[in-house]
Amino acid sequence: MMFAASGQNDKDRRIQQLYFVLFGIMTLLLVLPVLIILTTLVVKGGPALSIDFLFTKPTNGMTAGGIFPALLGTIWLVLVALLFSVPLGVAAAIYLSEYAPENVFTRIINLAIINLAGVPSIVHALFGVGAFVIFFRFGTSILAASLTLGIMTLPVVIVATRESLQAVPQAFREACWNMGATRWQTIRRVVLPNAVTGILTGIILEVSRTAGETAPIMFTGAAFFLPFLPQGVLDQTMALSLHLFVVSTQVPDMPEHLPFGVALVLIGIVLIMNSVSIALRMYLRGKKKW
């Protein structure tokens, strides 16, 4: 019989099954912590959630009431950080992808961007204190904290933008150049419109990253507790991530459900943002025509 299994076949198949099971278990182990964290948060923090929890101030030494100032503060911090890092990051990525010649200088810049992404957030925090709080005299403020966050998340924007620019086929650019389009006309009319979806998803990912950071804002603009809401970018603010740290570790007699509730809101924001990013990417990929 020409196609009968040989002994070697059986051995190969057993090894193949072994690896299949092994890798399957590894993957499961990867998902398990996420599932455990999420279910714990939902079970323990779920009861704390209510409209009031989201939209009232903390009371009674933060052991009761809601998280509105922290929620609002996080939104402030994220928006101001985006205002700074998105134009800068997108412009830098356009330069690097569309204009920059391939030389030592460009390679150094790219290396710097990779390294910027690897700098520990506490180092960014101290840089923020030195540069924005003290040198530029912004004081501990939303502005200083957001700029610190913005610098920290710049690599996310730059890398996402550059990747989506480079995903636009070179043939489109050549077509434009051969009709006498300048580089900028080419970018403006063809490259950017076809890259904008990738850039958007990058920005949304940056939002979720920015919202969760604690260290960079601790010394630069976020406060443990404030009796008032921020009125402008030079005010201090509360923030969800720091608030979570405070209610978990710094306040005695804290009811258990409250920190879990804060954590649930924080992780909810991050997960929603990531889902929006993924959904947007899938939707727009479906619409792509090349």
């Binding site: 043939a171 489109f172 077509a175 150049w177 051969n178 009709m179 006498g180 076809n194 090349w290």
Partner: peptide, 19 residues
């Protein structure tokens, strides 16, 4: 350079209509 490109058009191996 743009004037050169305008006066001298080019057609590529693979059709490359813009999207």
């Amino acid at each position: 350079l743009l004037q050169v490109r305008k006066q001298v058009g080019m057609v590529f191996q693979r059709p490359n209509p813009l999207p």
